[in-house]
Protein backbone atom coordinates (compact mmCIF):
# COMPACT_ATOMS: atom_id res chain seq x y z
CA UNK A 1 0.00 0.00 0.00
CA UNK A 2 1.90 3.01 -1.19
CA UNK A 3 0.70 6.59 -0.82
CA UNK A 4 -0.46 6.79 -4.44
CA UNK A 5 -2.83 3.83 -4.09
CA UNK A 6 -4.32 5.22 -0.89
CA UNK A 7 -4.89 8.66 -2.42
CA UNK A 8 -6.48 7.10 -5.53
CA UNK A 9 -8.92 5.17 -3.35
CA UNK A 10 -9.76 8.32 -1.36
CA UNK A 11 -10.36 10.27 -4.57
CA UNK A 12 -12.56 7.48 -5.96
CA UNK A 13 -14.71 7.55 -2.82
CA UNK A 14 -14.93 11.37 -3.08
CA UNK A 15 -15.97 11.07 -6.72
CA UNK A 16 -18.77 8.60 -6.05
CA UNK A 17 -19.88 10.73 -3.09
CA UNK A 18 -20.00 13.82 -5.31
CA UNK A 19 -22.05 11.89 -7.90
CA UNK A 20 -24.60 10.77 -5.29
CA UNK A 21 -24.76 14.31 -3.89
CA UNK A 22 -25.33 15.72 -7.38
CA UNK A 23 -28.26 13.35 -7.89
CA UNK A 24 -30.03 13.82 -4.54
CA UNK A 25 -29.46 17.57 -4.06
CA UNK A 26 -32.62 19.61 -4.76
CA UNK A 27 -30.77 22.90 -5.33
CA UNK A 28 -29.53 22.56 -8.92
CA UNK A 29 -26.67 25.04 -8.50
CA UNK A 30 -25.06 22.84 -5.83
CA UNK A 31 -25.61 19.78 -8.03
CA UNK A 32 -23.76 21.44 -10.93
CA UNK A 33 -20.80 22.32 -8.69
CA UNK A 34 -20.71 18.68 -7.58
CA UNK A 35 -20.51 17.54 -11.22
CA UNK A 36 -17.56 19.86 -11.74
CA UNK A 37 -15.86 18.18 -8.74
CA UNK A 38 -16.42 14.82 -10.51
CA UNK A 39 -14.72 16.18 -13.63
CA UNK A 40 -11.79 17.57 -11.63
CA UNK A 41 -11.08 14.21 -9.95
CA UNK A 42 -11.57 12.48 -13.32
CA UNK A 43 -8.87 14.68 -14.82
CA UNK A 44 -6.45 13.67 -12.02
CA UNK A 45 -7.30 10.01 -12.76
CA UNK A 46 -6.49 10.51 -16.44
CA UNK A 47 -3.11 11.94 -15.48
CA UNK A 48 -2.41 8.96 -13.21
CA UNK A 49 -3.43 6.58 -16.02
CA UNK A 50 -0.75 8.15 -18.29
CA UNK A 51 -3.14 10.06 -20.53
CA UNK A 52 -2.00 13.72 -20.26
CA UNK A 53 -3.80 14.78 -23.46
CA UNK A 54 -7.15 13.57 -22.18
CA UNK A 55 -6.46 15.10 -18.76
CA UNK A 56 -5.90 18.52 -20.35
CA UNK A 57 -9.10 18.27 -22.36
CA UNK A 58 -11.16 17.14 -19.39
CA UNK A 59 -9.72 19.91 -17.19
CA UNK A 60 -10.58 22.59 -19.73
CA UNK A 61 -13.96 21.33 -20.97
CA UNK A 62 -15.40 19.31 -18.08
CA UNK A 63 -14.43 21.65 -15.27
CA UNK A 64 -14.80 25.06 -16.92
CA UNK A 65 -17.08 25.06 -19.94
CA UNK A 66 -19.69 22.43 -19.02
CA UNK A 67 -20.17 24.04 -15.60
CA UNK A 68 -20.62 27.53 -17.01
CA UNK A 69 -23.15 26.33 -19.61
CA UNK A 70 -25.20 24.62 -16.86
CA UNK A 71 -24.98 27.73 -14.66
CA UNK A 72 -26.23 29.96 -17.51
CA UNK A 73 -29.16 27.59 -18.06
CA UNK A 74 -30.05 27.66 -14.36
CA UNK A 75 -29.88 31.46 -14.38
CA UNK A 76 -32.38 31.53 -17.24
CA UNK A 77 -34.72 28.86 -15.90
CA UNK A 78 -35.28 27.88 -12.29
CA UNK A 79 -32.88 27.04 -9.50
CA UNK A 80 -34.80 24.44 -7.51
CA UNK A 81 -35.64 21.01 -8.78
CA UNK A 82 -38.96 20.74 -6.98
CA UNK A 83 -40.68 24.08 -7.41
CA UNK A 84 -43.20 23.45 -4.61
CA UNK A 85 -40.47 23.58 -1.95
CA UNK A 86 -38.70 26.94 -1.86
CA UNK A 87 -35.93 27.42 0.66
CA UNK A 88 -35.83 30.86 2.30
CA UNK A 89 -33.12 31.18 4.92
CA UNK A 90 -33.16 27.97 6.92
CA UNK A 91 -36.83 27.22 6.46
CA UNK A 92 -38.39 25.18 3.68
CA UNK A 93 -41.71 26.66 2.66
CA UNK A 94 -44.38 24.72 0.80
CA UNK A 95 -46.13 26.75 -1.84
Amino acid sequence: MDILTISIIIMAILQIGAAIYAVIQKDLLYAVIATSVISLILSIFFYVLQAPDVALTEAAIGVALTTIVFVITIRNTERHEDKRHVKIGNKIIKK
Binding site: D53, A55, T57, L65, I68
Partner: peptide
Protein backbone atom coordinates in the same frame (compact mmCIF):
# COMPACT_ATOMS: atom_id res chain seq x y z
CA UNK B 1 3.96 17.75 -25.90
CA UNK B 2 0.54 16.94 -24.41
CA UNK B 3 -2.06 19.22 -25.89
CA UNK B 4 -3.27 20.19 -29.30
CA UNK B 5 -5.97 21.97 -31.20
CA UNK B 6 -8.92 20.92 -29.08
CA UNK B 7 -7.25 21.77 -25.77
CA UNK B 8 -5.73 25.04 -27.00
CA UNK B 9 -9.00 26.16 -28.57
CA UNK B 10 -10.84 25.45 -25.33
CA UNK B 11 -8.30 27.45 -23.33
CA UNK B 12 -8.75 30.41 -25.71
CA UNK B 13 -12.54 30.18 -25.30
CA UNK B 14 -12.02 30.22 -21.51
CA UNK B 15 -10.08 33.49 -21.86
CA UNK B 16 -12.96 35.09 -23.76
CA UNK B 17 -15.36 33.72 -21.13
Amino acid sequence: SPGGGFQGGTIIATGFL
